[in-house]
């Protein structure tokens, strides 16, 4: 039976994202979209994004998950802000 997407599922995913040692992310958003879950936010490497999606899909195989997580850029700034 397909698991219902509700508050309890959302909380389980939220805690897994932080408490699973292989994830340990506090900056991932969990949003319900009808009967699916959308993960958002940014992480430091493509490996981390792949691991998050793999862990969530593995733990909740009957839930439709959209992994909309980006990789934070590490470019050099082109300007500076004057503080006054």
């Amino acid at each position: 039976m397909t698991r219902q997407v509700d508050d309890y599922l959302e909380a389980e995913i939220q805690r897994l994202l932080t408490e699973d040692d292989r994830v340990a992310e506090q900056g991932i958003t969990v949003q319900r979209r009808e009967q699916s879950v959308v993960l958002g936010g940014e992480v430091e490497s493509p490996e981390r994004r792949a691991e998050i999606c793999r862990r969530i899909t593995e733990r909740f195989p009957d839930v439709e998950i959209t992994c909309d997580i980006g990789i934070t850029r590490t470019s050099v700034p082109v300007d500076a802000e004057e503080i006054s």
């Binding site: 430091e44 934070t72 700034p77 500076a80 006054s84």
Partner: peptide, 24 residues
């Protein structure tokens, strides 16, 4: 002035802030 420099907020390797410029 307060600046949140969390990497996902500034979206680059670092921000640069100038203190004690001539005008200041």
């Amino acid at each position: 002035p307060v600046r949140n420099v969390a990497h996902p907020v500034i979206k680059q390797a670092y921000n640069v802030y100038q203190l004690l410029s001539d005008e200041a």
